[in-house]
């Protein structure tokens, strides 16, 4: 016996978490089989599990996943390019920053995804609307964190650069930008998160595109088990994306 308290054991939390999840699913299965919960409202978890194969094969999930990934990639490119550039611009112009930073923060709090009917009119019911919604919703955190990262550069580093008579451009590319990179990445990651959430959301709302559309289509067909499986698939994809980006962010922060 190691004498370590049970709560400290590494395996216990994971087992408890997985056990809790499995028990909840087993309870749902039991309640539905006993007809205490209508199977016309909640499908059997076992049916949902079986439906995974069906939606992967019949609903062509891979191509839908690629469609969503393509939209997310396009929005990510725009968020990174324009968000970081605007952040650098705001950081360089102190007066403009004082005037606009709170506006950008206000935009971050606004329900920007609600612009989608407007974008439907401007861009039409196509992938461009979805990409633009992703871009607009991901922009504020990328701008704000870029400004924050550049402002947080340690003075001693800048002084060292100046003592080597670096030009302003060298000072920026050799010192300020690399030191701000981890914080900028936090902003870009947050931006990508908002982009992905809104991209899947708008796909669902306008019934167009990739993963969001499949949920809508299955719901309209009243294919309950398939719809639940598709929702689980979307959640799985989102969780994998957030997990990977979070690991990357931690690695970047450690490396800095």
């Amino acid at each position: 016996m190691s004498g370590r308290p049970l709560a400290e054991a590494k395996w216990l939390p994971a087992t408890l978490g997985l056990g809790g999840l499995a028990s909840a699913l087993a309870l749902a299965e039991l309640l539905i089989r006993l007809d205490w919960v209508s199977r016309f409202i909640v499908p059997l978890p076992s049916e949902v599990l079986v439906s995974f194969e069906r939606i992967i094969v019949e609903e062509d999930v891979l191509s839908r996943f690629l469609a969503t990934a393509g939209e997310a990639l396009a929005a990510a490119f725009l968020v990174t390019l324009i968000g970081v550039a605007l952040g650098v611009f705001l950081h360089r112009h102190r007066l403009l920053r004082s005037a606009c930073e709170s506006w950008v923060a206000g935009l971050a709090a606004a329900p920007l995804v609600l612009l989608y009917p407007l974008f439907l009119v401007i861009f039409g019911r196509n992938a461009l609307t979805i990409v633009m919604i992703g871009f607009v919703s991901g922009l504020p955190p990328a701008i704000l964190k870029t400004v924050e990262g550049l402002s947080g550069t340690r003075k001693v580093l800048l002084d060292v650069g100046r003592s080597f008579s670096l030009s302003p451009a060298q000072l920026f590319w050799k010192i300020q930008f690399p030191s701000a990179l981890p914080v900028i990445f936090v902003g870009v990651r947050l931006g990508l998160m908002f982009s992905l959430i809104n991209i899947v959301g708008v796909e669902f709302l306008i019934n167009f595109g990739g993963l969001g559309q499949i949920v809508n289509e299955l719901a309209e067909r009243y294919d309950l088990a398939g719809m639940y499986a598709a929702i689980c698939f979307v959640i799985l994809v989102s969780v994998c994306f957030f997990f990977a980006s979070e690991r990357l962010e931690r690695w970047l922060l450690r490396a800095s």
């Binding site: 959430i197 809104n198 899947v200 669902f204 959640i235 957030f242």
Partner: peptide, 8 residues
């Protein structure tokens, strides 16, 4: 689960 698109 927090950052997944809830609208689905």
């Amino acid at each position: 689960l927090g950052p997944t698109p809830k609208i689905i």
